[in-house]
């Protein structure tokens, strides 16, 4: 028996919004430690890794490890039926081929349930090597989203250059060149507005705007985003999900021919 309950459906809606542009379907691996999802996009350029800890749920029970393959378009249709403040419960029997998603209004006067067919997905689990990153940048998630959106107008690619002074995002195309520099913040009143750079070595990497913009769909989940970079390895873009877990995106760099 698997049962996981969250106080607010809005969190699940935001999580789905953060992954459904990259993935059409995905397997949710449930165990007593929580829910994990790991999947590459169709072109094998990016990977989504979602971790939701069992202790972040209002109620969590998972008697046997369970892999639930879900069509994310179908799940989005179901979540559209929930009000943001509704409680949401996901339930499945062991070895079931369906999952039930139930919404309850705060006053318990409206209860709706949706049974969704599960899919048998040919999933490959990937081992992600531990990396000693040269640069780790923490910055406001909204600012990162704004920069990715703005620079996508000028080029398909963005160059991220990180030094101890700051981080520079550049795009160059037919229109010309765009550069956005963010300096490390001195002192800030609000932690969520800070730009913090931990640098071992300066690093310059090029990435496809299209994927960065897809990652920023996670912005409503978190006030800050963390970018971890190292020469010639995938970028890691991480959004914390308060008291519940995190979503990490991995993006392979572009290299000179």
């Amino acid at each position: 028996m698997f049962e996981a309950r969250l106080g607010q459906a809005t969190i699940l809606k935001k999580i789905l919004d953060a992954i459904k542009d990259l993935l059409n379907e995905a397997t949710f691996d449930c165990s007593d430690s929580g829910i994990q999802l790991q999947a590459m996009d169709n072109s094998h350029v990016s990977l989504v890794s979602l971790t939701l800890r069992s202790d972040g749920f209002d109620k969590f029970r998972c008697d046997r490890n369970l892999s639930m393959g879900m069509n994310l378009g179908s799940m989005a249709k179901i979540l559209k039926c929930a009000n943001n403040e509704d409680n949401v419960t996901m339930k499945a029997q062991d070895n079931a081929d369906t999952v039930t998603i139930m919404f309850e209004s705060a006053n318990q006067e409206k209860v709706s349930d949706y049974e969704m067919k599960l899919m048998n997905l040919d999933q490959e689990h990937l081992g992600i090597p531990e990396t000693d990153f040269s640069c780790v940048v923490r910055m406001p998630a909204m600012e990162f989203a704004r920069i990715c959106r703005d620079l996508a107008q000028f080029s398909e690619s963005v160059v991220i250059c990180c030094t101890k002074e700051g981080v520079k995002f550049s795009a160059s195309g037919d229109v010309g060149t765009a550069n956005i520099k963010l300096a490390q913040t001195g002192s800030v009143d609000k932690e969520e507005e800070a730009v913090i750079i931990e640098m071992q070595e300066p690093v310059t990497l090029t990435f496809a705007c299209r994927y960065l913009n897809a990652f920023t769909k996670a912005t409503p989940l978190s006030t800050q985003v963390q970018l971890s970079m190292c020469a010639d390895v995938p970028l890691v873009v991480e959004y914390a999900i308060k008291d519940l877990g995190h979503i990490r995106y991995y993006l392979a760099p572009k290299i000179e021919d």
């Binding site: 094998h44 995938p234 572009k254």
Partner: peptide, 14 residues
């Protein structure tokens, strides 16, 4: 010109 690298080369199949 730049080429998009695939992720497969960085990660190992488990």
């Amino acid at each position: 010109a730049q080429t998009q690298v695939r992720l497969d080369s960085f990660f190992t199949a488990l």
